[in-house]
Nucleic acid binder design. Structure first.
Lengths: 135, 135
DNA sequence: GTAGATGATAAGCACGCGCACATGATTTGT
DNA sequence: ACAAATCATGTGCGCGTGCTTATCATCTAC
């Protein structure tokens, strides 16, 4: 008995998740990548914008206009880094933190719904496995 | 403690898998979508090309030229369907079957390598969970 | 102190994608 | 028998992507 391709299974689930996320992100006025940026910023402080781009797997030249809009929306600030005047320190604003929290909460609720067919133990193993594999 | 987003975890793993698949597919002279088509065809007989497109999540208008190249490469045949002369019956050629088998085998070897950090039980649960969630 | 690396930014290119629409052949519903 | 749906196919649009190159400011190494 041949098992299915990991890639195919991942792709199908990805599609489902992204479809379910879209309306949530729209309601919060965030793009997929905007959400990724905010999530990453809340996670751990990041040194440079390039490191941020790499961390979320986004093109560094496309990151600039994305950060522009997030800054215009008042969700983050770019300050000149005092220790390296080439670099900019990026920080979430309180509003950015709040928006991220609301979005993350809605997304996690959606995920729980989507994961309903699994037992608690399966859910746990799924997350452990994905975390361990990610790289 | 906040767990990571399912979407983010999936996206990261997807990237890894696709990166690892690319050289294999290149070596076999198949595109990602070409491989998806062959896999789906070998899986179960499919009625229409539109159903095929939907099954693999590909645009139906983009499927046509893809089938053209696969047919030119001698991997599949399109025959007029005798029961419905609008439709075409798509079938893998022996060469198509062989190419698919070789590719699938290489990909599964790669996947096993990638899944090495997991225990057998975790691997099994991962596939069960993904399969259950995919529809 | 000068050369080379690094950071942010801008602009442009070629792809692949989803989507919407059109057409012609054929089948289906009534 | 006639209208509406269906199938394969083709075309064109707009968008987002990764990639490359260039510019300017600043830092680092020798």
């Amino acid at each position: 008995m041949e098992r299915e391709d990991l890639g195919a299974l991942l792709a199908q689930l990805m599609r489902r998740v992204m479809e379910a996320e879209r309306p949530i992100l729209d309601a919060q006025g965030l793009s997929m990548w905007g959400y990724a940026v905010l999530s990453r910023l809340a996670d751990q402080p990041i040194q440079t914008q390039q490191a941020l781009a790499k961390a979320i797997g986004y093109d560094k030249s496309r990151l600039i206009p994305l950060l522009d809009t997030l800054e215009q929306d008042g969700l983050l600030t770019r300050q000149p880094d005092p220790t390296d005047r080439r670099a900019h320190t990026i920080a979430l604003t309180p509003e950015g933190t709040a928006r991220l929290k609301a979005t993350k909460s809605a997304i996690h609720t959606m995920e729980e719904d989507l994961l309903a067919p699994l037992t608690a133990s399966q859910k746990q193993t799924l997350f452990i496995a994905l975390s361990r594999l990610k790289p």
